[in-house]
Design a protein around this nucleic acid. Structure first.
Lengths: 246, 246
DNA sequence: GATAACTTGCACACCAATGTGCAAGTTATT
DNA sequence: AATAACTTGCACATTGGTGTGCAAGTTATC
C-alpha cells in the first residue's frame, strides 16, 4: 500500500515533506528500537510525528522498515570504518573503537538486531567485511607481538567486538560526555587486546589521530550528537493536527 | 489455577513427579529464555515435556514463572559469589569472573531479564548487593594501585561487569570448553581492570584458588555443565503421550 | 485398589500488534 | 486554482500469545 514517494506512474515528483517524513520515521525507529527492539510501529510512527497509517505509506511492512534501517545503518558504520588503517595494530584498534563511538546509535541498533530479529543472518552478512577487517588487524597484531599472545585471533577479535559493544552500552547508559565516551571505548578495546592501562594511555596520547575531535572528519551527514530523545511530537511535516488552519 | 503442589487443604503430600516437573519447567525456561527472552510459555512447556495447560498448573502466570526463575537464579549467583574475597583486588576480581563462569546459565538469564522485561527493577534490586561488593573491591583496588588509575570506581565496576557478561556470551556462542571459558572470563575481567595480558596471566598462575577445578566446591546442585540443549521431548514425568499404556 | 494429585485437550475470552480498505481531509507542486 | 501527493481516522481481518473452565484421563501414594 505504499502510497507516498510514488515515482512510477504520475507526472509529478515525490513531495519534499514526504521524504522528510520518511527520514523522520527512520530516525524515530533508530532511537526507539535501540531501547526496545520490539517497539511497536505505532510508537515509532508517533515518535516521528505521524500516524501509524501514514507509516504504512512509507514502509509496506515492519520488516521493510527494519531492513532499510539496517542497510542505512551498516552503510554508515562501514563508511566510518573504511579508512581506518595503521601499521600499528594497536592504533588501528583504538581508531576502530573511536569510529564506533562516533556512530553509537547506528552501531547499537545493528548489534541489537544482529542477535534477535529475523534479519540476524542478513545483518551478519553485511557486517562480515567489517568483522573480517578487524580479524586481519588482530591477526597481524598478534604476529607482530603488539597484542596479547594467549589467545587465538578469532577469539580475540570476537572479544574485542563484544567488549566494545558493551562499553558503548555502558557509556550511553551513564550518559557520558562525547569526549569521555571516545576515550573509554578506545581504552577498553586496547585493554582487552592485552595492553595495560598505562600502555593503552601511551598509545592514545602518542597518536594525534586518536585524539578527540568535535567533528570526526568523514561521515555522511552528522547530526549534532545529542543522544536524541524519543520526542513524542516533533513538528509533523504536513496537516496540522491542532491548528485548525485558522 | 495452580492445581499441582497443593499443600493446603488435602491430606496427602505433593506428588514427587509434580515437583520434578516444576523443576523441569524452570530448567526449560532458563534455557529458552536465554536464547529468546520472550519465548512463549508453549515453547517452555514443550521444552519441559509438558503441555502448556499443565504449566499453568505450576505457575499461575508468566510473570510468576519469570519471578521464580529470577529469584532462584540470583540465589545461586549470590551464593556463588558470597565467599569470594581476597586482600589482593586482582585476585578477587579474577575469582568473581571464575564463579560467574560456573553459573553461566543463571547469570545470562539474569542479565537478559535485567535489561528488558517488567522485572528489571526487581532484578536490579536483588543484584545490588553483588554489584556493591564488586564496587568496593574495585574501589580498594584502585586505592591500592592494583588496578587502573584512569577511571572512577563506578565506571570501572560497570565496565568489568559488562565485559564479563559479553565474554560469557561469546564463550557460550563459540562453545568453549569449560576450562577455556574459566580462563577467558578471568583474563578478560583483569584486562579491563587494567592489567596487561602478561600481568593477568601471572596473577592467575600464581594463585592456586584461581586454577580450574572440575567441581567448583560450593554450589547447590551441579548439573554436568553440558551447555544444555533445548531438548524438545525429554522424559515427561507422567502420562505417557504415545505409549498407549500398552 | 481407592483416591487424591496431576496432566491433557479443547473451547473460550481477551489483548496487543500487524496489515488493509476506503473516504475525507490537507498541502506541495504545477 | 487545479491536481496529484500525502496524511488521517476508522473499521476490519488476522495472528500469536496469555489466561481460564471443564471433563476425561493417568499415576503416585496411601
Amino acid at each position: 500500500m505504499t502510497t507516498p514517494l510514488r515515482t512510477t506512474p504520475g507526472s509529478r515528483v515525490p513531495r519534499r515533506d514526504a521524504t522528510e517524513n520518511r527520514l523522520a520515521i527512520l530516525d524515530s525507529a533508530r532511537v526507539l528500537l535501540n531501547r526496545d527492539p520490539e517497539a511497536s510501529l505505532d510508537a515509532i510512527a508517533t515518535g516521528a510525528g505521524l500516524s501509524r497509517r501514514a507509516l504504512y505509506g512509507h514502509f509496506a511492512t515492519r520488516d521493510d522498515l527494519v531492513t532499510e534501517l539496517l542497510s542505512s545503518g551498516s552503510e554508515r558504520v562501514i563508511a566510518a570504518l573504511s579508512h581506518v588503517d595503521h601499521p600499528d595494530s594497536r592504533v588501528a584498534i583504538a581508531r576502530i573503537g573511536a569510529r564506533l563511538w562516533s556512530e553509537v546509535e547506528n552501531v547499537r541498533v545493528m548489534a541489537q538486531l544482529a542477535i534477535r530479529g529475523p534479519q540476524r543472518h542478513a545483518v551478519a552478512r553485511t557486517l562480515s567485511p567489517v568483522r573480517h577487517r578487524l580479524l586481519s588487524i588482530v591477526t597481524s597484531g598478534i604476529d607482530a607481538h603488539e597484542l596479547r599472545q594467549d589467545m587465538a585471533p578469532r577469539t580475540l577479535a570476537a572479544l574485542i567486538e563484544g567488549s566494545a559493544l558493551s562499553v558503548l552500552d555502558e557509556a550511553i547508559r551513564s550518559n557520558l560526555s562525547n569526549r569521555d565516551g571516545h576515550r573509554l571505548v578506545m581504552v577498553a578495546a586496547l585493554a582487552v587486546a592485552g595492553l595495560s592501562w598505562r600502555e593503552a594511555a601511551e598509545v592514545i596520547d602518542r597518536h594525534a589521530e586518536l585524539q578527540f575531535a568535535e567533528h570526526p572528519s568523514a561521515a555522511i551527514d552528522e547530526q549534532p550528537p545529542t543522544t536524541a530523545q524519543p520526542q513524542p511530537q516533533p513538528q509533523p511535516h504536513t496537516t496540522d493536527p491542532e491548528g485548525k488552519t485558522a
